[in-house]
Amino acid sequence: MNTSLGGTLQIGGDLPVHRLGFGTMRLVGDGAWGEPQNPEEARRVLCRAVELGVTLIDTADAYGPEVAERLICEALHPYPPGLVIATKGGITRQGPAKTEYVGRAGYLIQCVEMSLRRLKLERIDLYQLHRIDPRTPLEESLGALRQMQEQGKIRHIGLSEVTPAEIEQAQKIVPIVSVQNRYSLADRRHEQTLNWCEQHNIAFLPWYPIAGGKLLKPDHPFAQTLKQLAARYDASPAQLSIAWLLHRSPVMLPIPGTSQVKHLEENIAAAALPIGPDEWAQLEAASQEPS
């Protein structure tokens, strides 16, 4: 059981990672607010993820806020060679599931500096703008991140929750190497963006990669097909959902998160599922049926 079974991806052409990463939002309190219920288990999850071959850990200063970054440092610093810590800035959090987008240059520069301090890094390998702030020109937001990149404090820059047009606009300001959008087997709202990323060899990090299944009605044909195929491989629907993401595109980099070691190990095991082309075709056809 190792994430290497899911294949590798070169982010930005020079940053190799295994294509099954780990997302840290679920390590903190509900609504991405506050401390974890079990801090020791949270740190064990992070350590176990690295043991199982995870080479990309995705986080953000808004998780907690600040809690997830601190936990990563407590559990893993000094970091093993080859481990990429990807973090994000540009969202402020006022309470559980309460956020506001802030893209002002001064604020983003502060975000980068504080993430560097909390993570005990000299350079962040992948820094993603958490959301585009509609009140701030994109040139100002990405100009600030470009400045930090020129200073050697950021290696690569990515975006989150964007359209192809927004990526193209951003590319005129600074090179973009990754996109993190909501996407899952049950939630294909960003299919066009994924296709664009695949055509331009940009890493696509789907967030909410499993829980999107909650959107399905129990009597939906897709839900039944997913359950039947999972049982055929002695797997869970969640594992099959992760395996499908890895199969869907070579630029896909799923980052399923959990606060329990047991669930982490189940997620990682999805990389080894020997699903055949007939089963993928059956699952794909069922997912396209109307609800």
Rank of each mutant, 00 (worst) to 15 (best):
P175G: 05
I72V: 10
V177L: 02
G106F: 00
E51H: 02
K217M: 13
H247T: 02
R48D: 01
L253T: 10
G53R: 07
V112A: 06
S287M: 12
A49F: 11
F222Y: 15
N2H: 15
G106L: 00
V28C: 10
L159R: 10
V67Y: 13
Y101H: 06
P274T: 07
P250W: 15
Q110G: 12
K98E: 09
G23V: 01
C73N: 13
L20H: 08
W33K: 06
Y127G: 14
K217L: 15
A230R: 11
Q192L: 08
S160A: 15
G158K: 04
L240V: 11
P237T: 03
T258Q: 10
K227C: 09
L119S: 05
F204Y: 15
H156I: 03
I173F: 03
Y107A: 06
I242W: 11
V28E: 12
L205Q: 15
N201W: 06
R182L: 07
P96Q: 08
G64E: 08
A186N: 02
N267R: 13
A223Y: 12
K172P: 02
L9E: 08
W33G: 02
G90Q: 02
Y63W: 05
L116D: 03
D234V: 02
F204D: 08
A269C: 05
A285Q: 14
E289F: 14
I242R: 06
E100W: 00
E168N: 10
L273Y: 10
T136Q: 07
S291N: 12
R232I: 01
A238R: 09
Q199R: 15
T163Y: 13
D187T: 10
T59M: 03
H200Y: 11
Y233D: 05
G257T: 06
E265L: 04
I72A: 08
Q110P: 05
L27Q: 11
Y63Q: 08
G276E: 14
Y79F: 06
Y127C: 13
I173W: 04
G53A: 10
